[in-house]
């Protein structure tokens, strides 16, 4: 059974079909990448999968169970977590607190009013572990707003890891990250391969072809091709959709 099974998802904003009959699966342990030009509807798709937006029609199943009607927190509880394209953190909290909250969300009730949470070793240890895995262990005590852009991206990842996902939706985790940072990030994601399934939305073609088991190409809200990286790279429709610079980049990758 697929971990994540999306069937005929459709979403329109007025006359504009931003998600047009999208079906896809994410298999256990798989990294399924979604690429597509700007405005293809990638982020809208993630928003529907994560529960932020309601699709007009279609079904989303997680491990066979229909989750189409569930809210974002309910989906997270079932193991479907996401990271944001535009960093979304608690700016006034420390890095550790940001992650500890994600741990707290899945461990015990948060209707506890008296015991100080700051000294909760179980939360802090698990948070530290996620931070270390995301390559941010040495910044735990820093207030999150003081981090650099690259560090923010790693904090996004650490928070997502701390929710203990079964399926992780990564919305352009490399946005704005370049050079060595990007390479390190890709290496990190590769280490998580097999631990949980990932749906990777990404512009960075090097990253996509280095990581993905399967690639789907989204153009104008429609999936025009799905296959192994090699199949997709040689697909004539895909080449046509990626005319110009990105098309060349794709051929080179």
């Amino acid at each position: 059974m697929s971990r994540l099974d999306v069937q005929s998802l459709t979403k329109s904003f007025g006359a504009l079909k931003v998600t047009d009959d999208v079906s896809l699966t994410v298999e256990p342990g798989e990294i399924h990448a979604i690429i597509g030009p700007n405005g293809a509807g990638k982020t809208t798709l993630v928003a529907q999968l994560s529960g932020q937006l309601k699709p007009d029609s279609g079904r989303i199943r997680l491990d066979g169970a229909d989750i189409t009607g569930l809210s974002m927190p309910e989906r997270v509880k079932r193991g479907l977590a996401r990271s944001f394209q535009i960093t979304s953190i608690l700016p006034g909290f420390t890095v550790l607190e940001n992650v500890a909250l994600a741990v707290q969300a899945r461990s015990g009730s948060s209707f506890r009013f008296f015991r100080p949470v700051a000294g909760d070793a179980a939360l802090n240890d698990a948070a530290m572990e996620a931070l270390t895995e995301a390559g941010l262990g040495d910044r735990a005590g820093v207030v999150a707003s003081a981090l650099s852009h690259g560090e923010h991206r790693r904090l996004e990842l650490a928070i997502a890891l701390a929710t203990n996902p079964q399926v992780l939706l990564l919305d352009e985790p490399l946005a704005g990250v370049g050079g060595e940072d990007a390479e390190a990030f890709v290496a990190r994601l590769r280490r998580f391969k097999g631990r949980f399934a990932m749906l990777l939305i990404e512009h960075d073609m090097d990253a996509v072809f280095a990581l993905a088991d399967r690639v789907s190409v989204l153009v104008y809200g429609r999936i025009i091709a799905t296959g192994t990286p090699d199949e997709v790279r040689s697909d004539a429709d895909v080449r046509a959709a990626y005319l110009g610079e990105e098309g060349e980049e794709m051929a080179d990758a």
Partner: peptide, 28 residues
């Protein structure tokens, strides 16, 4: 003071800081 520093208080303050993020880690 205890409430503010508790698990509950941290969730409450987190919602103030970034509501969407709190939903995305599993807090309604």
């Amino acid at each position: 003071h205890r409430i503010v520093g508790s698990r509950f208080g941290r969730v409450l303050t987190g919602i103030r800081e970034n509501r969407e993020r709190m939903e995305a880690v599993g807090f309604p």
